[in-house]
Design a protein around this nucleic acid. Structure first.
Lengths: 243, 243
DNA sequence: AAGTGGTCTAGACCACGAC
DNA sequence: TCGTGGTCTAGACCACTTA
């Protein structure tokens, strides 16, 4: 028998407040209850409420005004993500008002190029798992993503890989690794004919290309990613807040 | 006579720790003193130390490991920015290892287009201040930036505008406005001949284009920005951390 | 077992904005 | 003046890693 540890209080409060903002219990532009009121309602200390509100604030969900109060950001509908959500393509597509679906294209074994090996801290020629997938927004191809991870990290067989999983979940499930941070290179690129065809995008029109490296808490590279955004369908609009 | 208010303790601690990481007092990969040791050294509570460390952690400067310790990220040299620093082009250029300089190109009055007016919440035809500048990395043109702000917001004369100021400082100094959050649209674009010429970039090669709207805490649009990155010189490489 | 970071509390005082 | 959020403290206990 296993006791289900209750999640941290702050996480529960976080979830509740997010939900209230999402479902307009706290409507855009409205003022939230004060910190004292919230701490009273949830029966937690004010400090706990504050750590939660701080998180919502950096994501731009709420705006805090000293001496006045806390307000829901009116412009959330204009945005699809904040930086923390950059790699959750499904949520990004849905936040843009579309229905998201994932088509796993291929899960292959490839040998590491000089460049990949360098980035992953392994030797050239080592075996990599290459996971390609296409994300649709309302049935239209929106994002083409390819992840590379060293097969040596995986403890599970390729056949069992669920091509719809988020890369974070894959690394967790198949490699027992947690992503601690990521470094992203954002570029403009003219698509190859392959990429253009897959995204149903004119060859001469540039695309947004995100190249990312994922690392664990020991600075060990876990995986690489390269994604192309069809920005005739999907814009990358992110919100950022200060203080 | 004016009393100089001492800055918040946490800000001072923040500055000190950043400096120690920057000058490798805490070298990449090294373990930092524990929270208790730091709180002892600075004579502050552990909670205060923790709020500072949390900020450094979200920027990816340090990695925290429960039950173990806090470590300096080894890969800081690969990065030029994190999300909070996205619009400080000077720092971005310097973090990339170049010497930065700013050339103010023009400060004009223009009339708001339908689109600009919409974005700024004003009427089409109203007067805007258009500030164009070119950021150099080692004498090479790297970023072309143009900001638009309604003249009506400004209390100072155009002639007195310092074209080298950060947009945040401009809004503060000339409009008494603070930026609370920003919404950014990241796109790939083929440069116009003008833009290409200014950045000494081939016309057929795509550029990264960042379109940003700045807002105050009342959701009022303060200014617009549009920047083109010459990514043959300057890459946009950002770090992002979770937890 | 010892030491680390993670969570949480109950309180204090300050800075600021609205009334 | 009052209520808000901003800063800070001193302490408790938990979860986790390492030895």
């Amino acid at each position: 028998m296993r006791v289900i540890r209750s999640k941290p209080i702050s996480e529960q409060v976080n979830t509740i407040l997010r939900e209230r903002i999402r479902n307009t219990t706290y409507a855009p532009g409205r003022r939230l209850p004060s910190e004292s009121e919230l701490s009273g309602e949830f029966g937690v200390s004010r400090a706990t409420v504050r750590t939660v509100l701080a998180k919502l604030a950096v994501e731009g969900l709420i705006l805090r005004k000293q001496g006045d109060g806390t307000y829901v950001n009116k412009r959330l509908d204009e945005v699809n993500t904040h930086l923390g959500g950059l790699w959750d393509f499904v949520r990004l597509i849905e936040s843009s008002g579309f229905t998201a679906s994932i088509e796993p294209l291929a899960i292959d074994h490839v040998t590491a190029s000089e460049e990949d090996a360098q980035a992953l801290g392994i030797n050239p020629g080592e075996d990599l798992l290459a996971i390609s997938r296409l994300f649709y927004a309302n049935e239209k191809p929106a994002i083409l993503a390819r992840n590379l991870l060293p097969s040596a990290f995986c403890t599970a067989q390729v056949e069992t890989v669920d091509g719809r999983l988020h890369i974070r979940e894959m690394l967790k499930a198949y490699c027992q690794e947690d992503i601690a941070f990521a470094i992203t290179d954002i570029q403009a690129a003219l698509p190859s004919t392959d990429v253009a065809a897959t995204l149903q995008h004119p060859v001469g029109q540039p695309l947004l290309n995100l190249k990312v490296s994922f690392y664990n808490a020991n600075d060990k590279p876990l995986a690489l990613g390269s994604s192309y955004f069809n920005d005739s369908i999907l814009r990358l609009r992110l919100v950022q807040a200060w203080n």
